[in-house]
Design a protein around this nucleic acid. Structure first.
Length: 529
RNA sequence: AGGGGCGUAGCUCAGUGGUAGAGCAGCGGCCUUUUAAGCCGAAGGUCGUGGGUUCGAUCCCCACCGCCCCUACCA
């Protein structure tokens, strides 16, 4: 196989042949290093030239060649490893003719090991004076352009390895993502939660409202859905006596792709028996504040032009948010009574839409079947959601749009549910879990009757059975990890925080398919010839 | 799906209705403390694809393809 840019690929192959002719192995098995570049800079970054020569420190260090500055019979280069760059200095009279020829045949991107003593150059840069140079791997293709890094967003996503080599920022994002996930685990582990893994392939759709991906198990001859949420399995575990559980894993939703949506995304869900929604709001605040402090070293986090302040979380009821952000030009904001009255939300929506049409902004969408509760949800999303930049909990969701949440004791039209919004994005969703099997079965049946691709086709009877065995009063919550990582890394597209985001398939793949190469996932007997 | 933007050397980008330009990378040469090393030299292009207007199109027009952004579904 040959790759573009072909001239450089062939040139590098030729150099590799020359290197082998010098007696070097193309792919040696090991290199006994003593330090990584990061460790050397960490340990000796403060040592003076005198200290270094007095201590006579010998190191063996490996990494990718990211800069080369040959000077005739000597030369400098930089070696990248472990996220740091270390300079090395090669002299013909030190390494000898053979190794110096190897140095001259090096290309940017090659992986080498150098052995030698540390010193400081004229410009006071900590440097390895190379006594022995070894090729560890030849790079047959060149690294990204050295000034601008890799800027083509498509290649950055499709060939993330190049993005990681060429763009320090990309590397930092994914290291921080790992740190965030580590802190989340620590937070829940410390509080006695058990981490579990529940099925990714579900026989019945449930746990959220979304269009699913469908797959098929051949031996069982059974259609399965890639899960849209783990919720119903996690609550089964609480029935089973795992009073505190969490899962960090992928969900799959067959919906659109944009700056804040990817078909597979990572969700943290956690459940806690003998608790309720309002308690989780406090816990969430503690969790996110602590994360910001640990990961971003402060409660105030830059996000684009704005600054997100995790020290204070606003709390607003959904109806209150509609009132608060009701535009003045649309007349008097609706009263709480009007929003709560039967048929009230429809009148309010009509009033808003009259304004929206005149003003040319988005209207509230509904039809004759839209319930009061659904209209409240629509009003909220249209009027308020975009304004929720600082961390804000919205609570008191209509029960119609909360099929798995417990009703409020004092108002059965409202669910004891909240969502957290930051920078206009929904980041978390939590509630007191509905644990009345009769009410749950009724709501499931309503969903099935309502129909649609995003609704279950059948009632999950085993889940009702589990509830019938008794789910303690429980609170649960889901937090979108990708969006959280966006906030804490100042990233404005979800693709920046997912290593290999899904993209349209490539012209390259299409060409391969056209040329008759097999790219289909169909079983062999169904493949076209 | 609709609206907007972009597509020129391997990369980052200039540019013009009259046969295409820089820096970096690559190639040859000089250079034993450089660091966006430097200097000299040569090479590199179907200007996204197809059609149209024109004496002549990379440039103007149309269509298509690809990517990005916004809007709609969605978390």
């Amino acid at each position: 196989m040959e790759f573009e840019p072909l001239d450089q690929y062939l040139q590098r192959r030729k150099k590799l042949t020359e290197i082998e002719a010098l007696g070097h192995l193309a792919h040696p098995h090991r290199f006994d290093w003593t330090h990584t570049p990061r460790q050397i800079l960490g340990q000796f970054g403060d040592s003076t030239a005198e200290e270094l020569s007095a201590k006579n420190i010998e190191v063996r260090v490996a990494g990718r060649v990211v800069a080369l500055r040959p000077h005739g019979k000597a030369g400098f280069g930089h070696l990248a490893g472990d996220g740091e760059k270390l300079q090395f200095y090669v002299r013909l009279d030190v390494v000898g003719e053979n190794a110096f020829k190897l140095f001259q045949l090096l290309d940017l991107g090659d992986i080498v090991g150098v052995s030698g003593h540390l010193f400081r150059t004229k410009t006071n840069e900590l440097t390895v004076k190379v006594e022995k140079l070894q090729l560890l791997t030849k790079a047959l293709l060149p690294p990204p352009e050295k000034w601008h890094g890799l800027t083509d967003t498509e290649i950055r996503y499709r060939r993330r390895y190049l993005d990681l080599i060429g763009n320090e920022k990309a590397r930092e994002i994914f290291l921080r993502r790992a740190q965030i996930v580590r802190e989340l685990r620590r937070f829940f582990d410390e509080r006695g939660y058990v981490e579990v893994e529940t099925p990714m392939m579900h026989p019945i759709l449930g746990g959220a409202t979304a269009r699913p991906f469908v797959t098929h198990h051949n031996t069982l001859d059974m259609d399965l859905y890639l899960r849209i949420a783990p919720e119903l399995y996690l609550k089964r575990l609480v029935v089973g006596g795992l009073d505190r559980v969490y899962e960090i894993n992928r969900n799959f939703r067959n919906e659109g792709i944009d700056a804040i949506h990817q078909p597979e995304f990572t969700m943290l869900e956690f459940y806690q028996a003998y608790s309720d929604g309002p308690t989780l709001m406090d816990l969430t605040e503690e969790l996110l504040r602590g994360l910001a402090e640990k990961v971003c070293s402060g409660r105030k986090v830059a996000f684009g032009e704005r600054e997100i302040d995790f020290s204070r979380f606003e709390r607003l009821s959904m109806r209150g948010a509609i009132r608060k952000f009701w535009p003045a030009e649309a007349g008097a904001a609706p009263s709480v009574e009007e929003l709560a009255a039967k048929g009230g939300p429809r009148k309010v929506a009509a009033r808003y839409n009259y304004f929206a049409k005149a003003k040319g902004v988005d209207a509230v969408e509904s039809d004759e079947n839209t319930s009061d509760g659904e209209l409240i949800g629509e009003l909220f999303e249209t009027i308020a959601e975009q304004h929720l930049v600082q961390p804000t909990f919205i609570y008191d969701f209509p029960v119609e749009i909360s099929p798995l949440a417990k009703r409020r004791e004092d108002d059965p039209s409202l669910a004891e549910r909240f969502e957290l919004f930051i920078a206009g994005m929904e980041v978390a969703n939590g509630f007191s879990e509905l644990n009345d099997p009769d009410d749950q079965e009724r709501r499931f049946r309503e969903q099935v009757e309502k129909g649609g691709q995003e609704m279950p086709k059948e009632v999950d009877l085993d889940y009702i059975r589990a509830l019938s065995h008794g789910l303690p009063p429980t609170a649960g919550e889901g937090i979108g990890i990708d969006r959280l990582v966006m906030l804490l890394t100042n990233s404005h597209a979800i693709r920046e925080v997912i290593l290999f985001p899904l993209l349209r398939h490539t012209a390259e793949a299409d060409a391969a398919a056209a040329a008759g190469q097999e790219t289909s996932l169909k079983p062999p007997d169904e493949r076209s010839k």
